[in-house]
Design a protein around this nucleic acid. Structure first.
Lengths: 184, 184
DNA sequence: TCGTAGTGGAACACAGTTGTTCCATGACGG
DNA sequence: CCGTCATGGAACAACTGTGTTCCACTACGA
């Protein structure tokens, strides 16, 4: 069992959560800041993650899991390619500051090429079923998805009056418009 | 006259250019790296910019000028709001790695609120003349513009086979689609 | 009550960045 | 040929972040 003590798991998770939040805003932030944000001594942080790289890879691993769970929830095999992509968008949107981390590319090793390939497949399904403009290459659509997700997250972060639902609505509208084939 | 020597101007510009390129990729990059990229000794760099903050503000100032020039070239008062925005996009796209810098928000003080307000005005013109979906708030359109510009730049940087013209075409297509009003 | 697990703080050495000073060198014009 | 201008390198002190060690404290179960 990797359960160890339960307390240790909670501490470990608190550190990882704090790291995701702070690294999203400043990829160069210090371990001391992360420890403080996690309400944990720097000594304790080092007890869990020997060196910075260990923490970063744990963050990447956690990020990969969350992305995977979101993709599962989105039920990507259902409906048209565009519908699946918009559902994925809604799930990803709730990942919050993890989005910034992914988009910054700092979390490079988060999702292996398998996940990316899977999304490419969904987009190609959209090309085939006519829900996504075939003139848009799959990898461009993927880039677009990420950039608009990040934009929506930033937009929400800067404007408190904008509710989650409202921003998600804007995101959905602009993204589905962007992907729509010409004479639909 | 602020001309000083001509040689000094070239050196100064080389440092700023190198700084823009490197800071775009890594906002925490060291002055030593920037000096090396500018093919200049670290001593010389410090002679031009007393401390890091001085270089950063010079970069911000340079960025502001380039943005302003691009906006002028785009001739924003001509045509519909959407057309003006797309022209601006084409001009901004050629700013290259400066885009990453702007979008990272590191270059916060680059363009004062006057420039931002001017763009907001262009977008509202688009709302009025029916070329931009009035359901999309102006600041959301602005966020969208920046994120898609950044996405296009990254897309181009990672794929050498994608020509400038091709990427610009994808950008134009998706952005104009995203902004298009419903029953156009 | 005692032992252990989990933790936090203080202190340290080490590495990298920053900003400074001083000196040597090459270019260029008078 | 000489002076100056712009530069590069070496060396330095100060600071910050990192990784480690050691010790003290608290909670909790046997």
């Amino acid at each position: 069992m990797a359960v160890t003590s339960g307390v240790k798991n909670r501490t470990r998770q608190a550190i990882i959560d704090a790291a995701i939040d702070l690294l999203a805003g400043n990829p160069a932030c210090s371990l001391g800041e992360i420890a403080a944000a996690a309400q944990v001594g720097r000594t304790t942080l080092h007890r869990y993650f020997g060196e910075r790289a260990d923490l970063l890879s744990a963050v990447a691993s956690e990020g990969g899991e969350r992305l995977g769970r979101a993709a599962t929830l989105a039920d990507l095999d259902r409906g048209t390619g565009a519908e699946a992509l918009l559902r994925l968008c809604r799930e990803y949107f709730d990942l919050g500051s993890l989005l910034s981390l992914m988009f910054s590319g700092q979390g490079g090793e988060c999702w292996e090429s398998q996940d990316e390939q899977y999304l490419i497949g969904v987009i190609e399904r959209g090309h085939a079923d006519g829900s996504i403009d075939p003139a848009l290459p799959s990898d461009w659509v993927l880039t677009l998805l990420w950039s608009q997700l990040y934009a929506a997250w930033e937009y929400r972060a800067q404007r408190q009056e904008a509710s989650r639902h409202h921003v998600l609505d804007l995101l959905t509208r602009t993204l589905s418009n962007a992907l729509r084939p010409p004479q639909s």
